[in-house]
Amino acid sequence: MHNPQLNAHGELQHLLSLDGLPRDILTAILDTAEPFTEVAEREIKKLPILRGKSIFNLFFENSTRTRTTFEIAAKRLSADVINLNVATSSTNKGETLLDTVDNLCAMQADMFVVRHASSGAPYLIAEHLHTTKRHDIHVINAGDGRHAHPTQGLLDMYTIRHYKQDFTKLVIAIVGDVLHSRVARSQIAALTTLGVPEVRVIGPKTLMPTDLDKLGVRVFHDMREGLRDVDVVMMLRLQNERMNGPLLPSGQEFFKVWGLTPEKLAVARPDAIVMHPGPMNRGVEIDSAVADGSQAVILPQVTFGIAVRMAVMSMLGSN
């Protein structure tokens, strides 16, 4: 089956998922991001790489944070950024997803950054561009349903590499609501591709998808067992609407059992880092003492996120 993310030369055509992306491409993106971190420290935070290109932020699901980081990344590469909040516009008037895409193509878009509540929506757009032979337009998945959030996964990899260098010696734990998390799926795909020997996931059975072990991870339900001697703890966000209902009795109980507190973190390696994709629910998945503590690298993640998104955009723009 052809991989819709790669072009005929095996180069990145779209960034849709980290699952199925070869290790050399993942590494190339991280390497490309490296010099971009310095751009932010310059007096003029701009490079001319995407000058004259039009990037459409196509958000079918509300987001401020992710959309903003993509916007900053695109602007630092001198692209023109057009933000479309489709959640409140044409699709509510009955326009189909692909009609929206066709219209924006007619406006000479060069790149789409897509967020959608349904898993696979960016694939549908990429497939549509392929069948209509618009091979010069690229799609970046900015989060689709429960499926993937590849730039988040990449910035997490960048962060881990920054602090821990070698992926092949690490034990990493992902904690929380894996069932609904596109972030977790992208993290698992990237970590296993990059050669992390042990990826663990920790959480209640209600928040673990079926056959998760087939993705190459070890499943734990107990925090102290799962966190023992890990090098990296990656917390997931728990959505408010999932806290009280058939999946979980309450946010308080979740915090008591799976919330990351200094006591639970103590069983990890002393130099373990703590990550979170944001926005955090303090007192639900993470204790403030950890979130603000010396092991947290949550704010550097945000900074690296811009460099990683610049890297992805510049690579797509040149392929």
Binding site: G120, G145, R146, H147, A148, P209, T210, D211, K214, L215
Partner: peptide, 15 residues
């Protein structure tokens, strides 16, 4: 189907 493919693709499963 609630199995490996749905888990990988993030699709809600039917057991």
């Amino acid at each position: 189907h609630d199995g490996e493919v749905a888990t990988r693709l993030g699709l809600p499963g039917i057991p």
